[in-house]
Structure formats: structure tokens, C-alpha cells
Amino acid sequence: MDAIQQHMLDTYRAARLSEPAPPPPGRHDRSVLRDLYRHWLTHPPTRHAPGPDGPSGPSGV
């Protein structure tokens, strides 16, 4: 089931239960990506030092 089908099912259930309809899929994608980007700018990922087996793990793997 894709996101549109799930949204249609949730909307149908909400209507049957006299509840407000859920927001459409993808409605908040832009704001979520913007918040993630801002978080990444203020907290960039750190590089970890290679372990005792080197940067790619044990040589047998």
C-alpha cells in the first residue's frame, strides 16, 4: 500500500468516526527537510577515528 492509498483509508476511517481528516502525505516534507538541514548545520556529523582493525573493519570481512 502506498502513501496515497493509506491516506485515503485514513480519511475514510476519520469520516466514519466523525474525526478530522489527516493531513495529506508530503504536506510537511519541505519543513522537515529544512529543519534537518538546519540541525545538520549546527551539529555536523563527526568523523570517528579508525578502530584497531583499520577504517574498513577486519581484513577477513
Rank of each mutant, 00 (worst) to 15 (best):
H7C: 10
P23L: 10
P45S: 00
D2L: 07
H7F: 15
R30M: 05
G54D: 03
P50S: 07
L9H: 06
H43F: 01
Y37W: 12
Y37P: 03
W40P: 02
L33P: 03
R30K: 09
R13L: 15
P23S: 10
G51D: 03
P58R: 12
R47I: 04
P44R: 01
S18T: 06
P20M: 00
S56F: 15
A15D: 04
Q5R: 13
P22V: 00
H43A: 06
I4D: 13
R47L: 08
S31I: 12
D10R: 10
P55Q: 09
P23E: 13
P45T: 00
G54C: 04
P23T: 08
S31E: 15
A14G: 07
P20A: 01
H7W: 15
R47W: 02
L41S: 03
S31N: 08
P45W: 00
H28C: 09
S56L: 15
P24D: 06
E19H: 11
L9A: 08
G60T: 13
P52M: 03
V32H: 11
A49F: 01
L17G: 05
A15L: 05
D35F: 06
H48A: 11
P50L: 07
P44G: 01
Q6A: 09
T11L: 05
Y12T: 08
Q6K: 10
R16M: 12
